[in-house]
């Protein structure tokens, strides 16, 4: 082979990989996502349109006709929109933190290719997290833009909910990633996560009605649910929903803590599993 010499020595390659390895893997993750970018975009536009029309416009007309007092003085669409944005982000995260992880370790073993390169297992975990975060930010921003078009995000700080919704996705997705990293076979766990965790969270996190209207013995679902925390924050940001400042801090800290715990655990599990 007669080609240009490699522009980096092995020592330089290693130094770059130590510094930027997570970003190199994120680049890989995003290149893979580009292969299904069209469906992500269609989903990003189609889902908000469907939900906002069906629930926000159809159902809202019915609810608003019966008085909007229950929703803090705003119309139902404005009340609902922050929850829809956050739940869409959480659902995207569910898929991205389950299947590619199983694919990487088990199905097609795609994590083991980069593992033989200068990258460390923890960087592969981090790279995946970075890639998915970017992949979630984009459709969340699109979702938010459509909410704005529907006139359901009146406040000047409403745009910040793009980031709180993404944080919600990580708060739910990273502990899930840590769990999936420990799986050695798929015996129905993914369907169980969807049915018995994601769906109840979607329904009982103060999404469609205030959490306080649930019976007391179901309200704990909301307190544990990143979706409730993100939804509440989204409402504060979107239309100034009245809430004590300390509770706002709890929302942010809860989501940050669970996301960080999930990331730290994932890094450890990746390192242990790949270095055996």
């Amino acid at each position: 082979m007669t080609s240009a010499p490699v522009p980096l020595t092995p020592a330089q390659s290693a130094a770059k990989a130590r510094r930027l390895g997570s970003w190199y893997f994120a680049e890989h993750t995003l290149r893979v996502m580009r292969t299904y970018a069209a469906s992500v975009l269609m989903y990003s536009v189609g889902t908000p349109l469907a939900y906002l029309f069906a629930m926000g416009v159809g159902l809202a007309a019915l609810i608003d006709a019966n008085g909007a007092g229950a929703f803090g003085g705003v119309d139902y669409l404005t009340f609902l929109a922050p929850a829809l944005v956050a739940s869409a982000a959480m659902m995207s995260a569910t898929g991205e933190f389950m299947f590619p992880i199983m694919d990487g370790f088990k199905w097609r073993r795609t994590f083991f290719g980069p593992h033989a390169s200068p990258l460390a297992p923890a960087q592969i975990a981090q790279g995946h997290i970075i890639g998915v975060t970017i992949r979630i930010l984009v459709p969340t921003a699109i979702y938010f833009a459509i909410v704005v078009l529907f006139g359901a995000a009146p406040g000047p700080w409403a745009w910040v909910s793009i980031f709180t919704a993404t944080l919600c996705a990580l708060s739910f997705g990273l502990p899930l990633m840590a769990y999936v990293s420990t799986l050695t076979k798929d015996s129905g766990q993914f369907a169980a996560v969807q049915r018995f965790i994601v769906t109840p969270l979607f329904l009982f996190s103060g999404t469609f009605f205030p959490l306080a209207t649930l019976p007391w013995f179901l309200q704990w679902i909301g307190w544990l649910s990143p979706l409730w925390h993100a939804t509440e924050l989204g409402r504060v940001l979107s239309y100034g929903y009245a809430e004590p400042a300390w509770l706002g801090a709890v929302h942010v800290l809860y989501m940050l803590a669970t996301a960080v715990a999930g990331a730290v655990l994932s890094r450890r599990i990746f390192t242990r599993r790949m270095g055996a």
Partner: peptide, 13 residues
């Protein structure tokens, strides 16, 4: 190309 990026190699190479 993706694999080469893990070594910090530029796309031009």
């Amino acid at each position: 190309i993706v694999y080469g990026r893990y070594f910090g190699l530029p796309l031009s190479y």
